[in-house]
Design a binder for these strands. Structure first.
Length: 823
DNA sequence: AGCACGCCGACT
DNA sequence: GTCGGCGTGCTC
């Protein structure tokens, strides 16, 4: 054993571009290992959890190193494979390793110190305190111990300085304490006390209970449940199970505890659902599915990535289940990624049905404690070790041990891309890299694949398997286009509803069918306007109008959250003639009720699904037909299967078609075909009504013909001509500054710097659609890079030029955001 | 990201 | 005169 000094380079959970070096004291040297968490002091006082990235014996020369405080783990929480994956994410998406760490580790594994303040009881010079100091002092006095954030919550003023001066005067003392945020869940269990843990003793006691039948029942149930006094293995009996089993109240149990029969003990239990460990053989597939499954398997022999292009309701999930089953049989793990809102009870139940307890769910509506448990479970095969993870984009960071297959369902979904905060990664693309690390296969599934993916499939980079028949012979819906411009001229429109659509809703409701209406805008109205002077309420911090929300009775900025109470008189001229302009889901819901007073109408958007079970409840109500018409934003398009929907209405196709983005047509087609896919079930053909002022628009025409292919070919010609993906890569740089001029100047300077080498690949700077958000002015620069050019060098060059820019004194405060492969 | 240090306006 | 606002720069 050599005693050469040991140092660790650690990743700290910040957007700092480099690692930090700490010394390892001798007593911790044996424990230091790559991938373990260590507690370090960083800065003047704070302590953080860092991940050990590398060990070495090079003492840094130009600064004093601090020692690490402790090592938290017996075994690494992050594997070498994960660290290389983090590194890829950090390089490719141009962010720091710390930012990746922040995204990858569940919060429960990231401890952070909190400043705690205590009263110094020996302090007696209260007269020396200023008034505002005294306010804080007495607050601390009432609590004995308090955190800095608690003080900040009760006092409005800058409490940090006050606390500091209290400390200087000796009135309080301060400590930094790590808060352990992960808490194992405890449950109460029962056991017999030593005195009664013997059959004859207990029987004697039972005889004394003639006048307490409930207590008798309880003891008998306990004997039965625990299997005590039998040859069978003992079961631990939880308090809850026992009480539930014999319908006896807690007070009965209490008196038995007081009599010294039972005692309670606590045990850590898992929060994760524990169903039966059943393992069913997957169901029989139909002929097209068997065909597709065979093609996928065959394709995997020569390709690592296969696209399953299966139209809506073609039964892709069944195929996934068969593929998962294959992997499990080989002892491999499977990661099944879905967009956030597509992970419903429906899909969870289907997987659990086949694979029972081996399915782990990783989802944002799970508490952080639950996520830590999933993490630990994967990391420790003693805990059972999941074979299948069903999760959202962040599940790509989980500690897999033996990944064999990644399924990315609804592959085209935008929500796989994280925008804020960094890392701005696309889980679909990152998952492909992750798979390569494990030599695993990737299956991408979609009814409307993204053009990037389809392009790769067309060019033989990915395998391509098509599933063109709907499951159980369900027909594709019929599509009706309503020309809103013509209808309005003829007076055939009532607000946003054409007569045609109203009629079809009527027909659907009369035959006891359900209706889905799609309007891609939440709130009541995008803005209100004074009819007398034209005043429109705008956000104080952003260049947007305030969206009116009727049920909140507020006007809300959808970019920063700024809100004002709803205005009934004009702030400029005092007129009361204020009208709402445009339509959000709330207004649609309101007006529908007037047209169909007897119908049950529900709304599904960000606002109505905020609570933990909000989304589930709406779906459950709709499934059980407690709701006749469901009005919603994009959410209603996501992979939901309802039995009884005969009509889908798209209220205004125009606002998606005319969205200023090169992907607007691709996205409109996706949305319209996805939402149409919700219509129609076995035996009845569904109907889709699309309202638009441009019925001749190519997207509308392709939607009618259900021609994904045609739309793709048309769009690819355009993408090629204008150097857009998939032919070129895009990198978007956003500059932010609170002065409009400084922002523009900086953007111009940076664009000029970039053009020196990148020439015409640099576009802009341009003002984004929203020119100011949260008091910061924005400018965008887009860089289009040919696929053949080394993107690594381009990224290095961009980083250099940004450093160059921010080194200039007048641009010190320019904030830059780099988004690689933006959406 | 935090947090300390340091430099200017509005209050006792 | 001080308090307290936030711009600037550093953290192993």
């Amino acid at each position: 054993m050599t005693s050469s000094p040991l140092f660790v380079d650690v990743i700290l959970p910040f957007p700092l571009p480099r690692l930090f070096t700490y010394a390892v004291p001798d007593q911790l040297a044996a424990d230091a290992q790559i991938g373990k968490r260590t507690v370090v002091q960083f800065g003047a006082k704070k302590y953080y959890t860092a991940i050990i990235k590398q060990l070495h014996d090079q003492k840094p020369q130009d600064y004093e190193v601090k020692e690490i405080i402790s090592i938290l783990d017996e075994h690494p929480v992050v594997s070498n494979e994960q660290l290389s994956f983090w590194e890829w994410v950090s390089d490719y998406y141009m962010c720091s390793l710390g930012e990746v760490m922040k995204a990858a580790l569940p919060a429960g594994l990231k401890l952070e110190s909190e400043t705690r303040i205590y009263i110094n009881h020996d302090f007696d010079n209260e007269a020396s305190l200023t008034d505002s100091e005294y306010v804080v002092f007495s607050l601390i006095q009432t609590k004995l111990e308090i955190t800095l954030s608690e003080i900040a919550a009760t006092t409005k003023k800058n409490c940090i300085t006050l606390v500091k001066s209290l400390y200087d005067k000796g009135a309080v003392y301060i400590e930094e304490k790590l808060k352990e945020s992960f808490k194992a869940k405890k449950e109460s269990f029962l056991k017999l006390t030593n005195q009664y843990n013997n059959e004859s003793e207990l029987n004697n006691f039972l005889d004394t209970l003639k006048r307490a039948p409930k207590q008798q029942v309880l003891i008998e149930h306990f004997i039965h449940l625990s299997g005590i006094f039998t040859a069978l293995p003992l079961n631990e009996v939880s308090k809850q199970t026992l009480l539930d089993s014999c319908e006896v109240t807690n007070s009965t149990l209490k008196s038995l505890i007081e009599k010294g029969v039972f005692e309670i003990y606590q045990k850590d239990i898992s929060r994760l659902a524990s169903g039966e460990d059943l393992f069913k053989e997957p169901t029989q597939l139909n002929a097209p599915q068997i065909q597709a499954l065979g093609e996928i398997t065959h394709s995997f022999k020569s390709k690592d990535i296969v696209l399953l292009h299966g139209i809506t309701s073609s039964g892709k999930t069944e195929i996934y289940i068969h593929l998962i089953n294959e992997q499990i049989k080989q002892g491999k793990q499977v990661l099944y990624i879905l967009p956030e809102i597509a992970i419903t009870a429906q899909i969870i139940n289907r997987l659990r049905n086949y694979f029972g307890n081996t399915v782990g769910i990783y989802h944002s509506k799970f508490s952080d404690n639950e996520r830590v448990e999933i993490w630990n479970n994967l990391n420790n095969s003693n805990l059972g070790g999941y074979n299948i993870i069903l999760g959202v984009r962040s599940s790509i960071y989980l500690p897999f041990k033996n990944l064999g297959l990644i399924i990315i369902d609804e592959e085209h979904e935008n929500s796989f891309k994280q925008y804020d905060p960094a890392p701005r990664y696309n889980a679909r693309d990152a998952a492909i890299v992750l798979a390569r690390l494990w030599n695993a296969k990737v299956l991408l599934g979609s009814a409307t694949p993204s053009y990037e993916t389809y392009f790769n499939a067309q060019n033989d980079k990915y395998g391509l398997v098509k599933l063109t028949e709907r499951y159980q012979g369900i027909e594709l819906p019929r599509t009706i286009i309503v020309n809103t411009l013509a209808a309005r001229k003829k007076g055939h429109m009532r607000s946003l509803f054409s007569n045609e659509l109203l009629q079809q809703i009527e027909i659907a409701l009369e035959s006891d069918k359900q209706v889905i209406l799609f309007q891609n805008r939440r709130g009541y109205a995008p803005f209100i306007e004074c009819q007398a002077c034209g005043w429109i309420p705008k956000c104080k911090h952003c260049d947007v109008t305030l969206t009116m929300h009727k049920y909140l009775n507020q006007m809300v900025c959808h970019y920063c959250g700024y809100a004002l109470p709803n205005q009934h008189t004009c702030k400029e001229c005092g007129s009361t003639d204020i009208q709402t302009v445009g339509y959000g889901t709330e207004k649609i819901e309101d007006e529908l009720q007037i047209f169909f007073p007897k119908a049950n109408i529900a709304r599904m958007d960000l606002d109505s699904t905020r609570s933990k079970h909000g989304y589930e409840n709406i779906i459950a109500d709709f499934e059980a037909h407690r709701v006749d018409i469901l009005v919603g934003t994009q959410m209603v398009t996501k992979g939901l299967d309802f039995e009884n929907v005969s009509l889908v209405g798209i209220l205004n196709a125009d606002n998606m078609l005319f969205f200023p983005d090169f992907r607007a047509y691709e996205r409109s087609f996706q949305l319209m075909s996805q939402v149409s896919g919700r219509a129609g079930r076995k035996g009845t053909q569904g109907l889709v009504v699309i309202q638009t002022s441009v019925p001749g628009n190519p997207v509308i025409q392709h939607v009618i013909k259900n021609s994904y292919e045609g739309m793709y070919i048309e769009q690819m010609a355009e993408r090629k001509e204008f150097n857009y993906p998939p032919f070129h890569r895009l990198i978007k740089i956003t500059l932010k500054h609170k002065e409009s001029n400084t922002c523009s100047e900086a953007a111009n300077t940076l664009a000029t710097l970039l053009k020196k080498q990148l020439n015409t690949r640099v576009l802009g700077p341009d003002m984004p659609v929203i020119g100011r958000i949260q008091n910061l002015f924005l400018k965008n620069i887009i860089i289009k890079v040919e696929k053949e050019i080394s993107i690594i060098k381009v990224k290095q060059f961009i980083n250099q030029q940004i450093t160059h820019l921010t080194n200039q004194p007048n641009f010190k405060n320019i904030h830059t955001v780099i988004d690689v492969d933006p959406l």
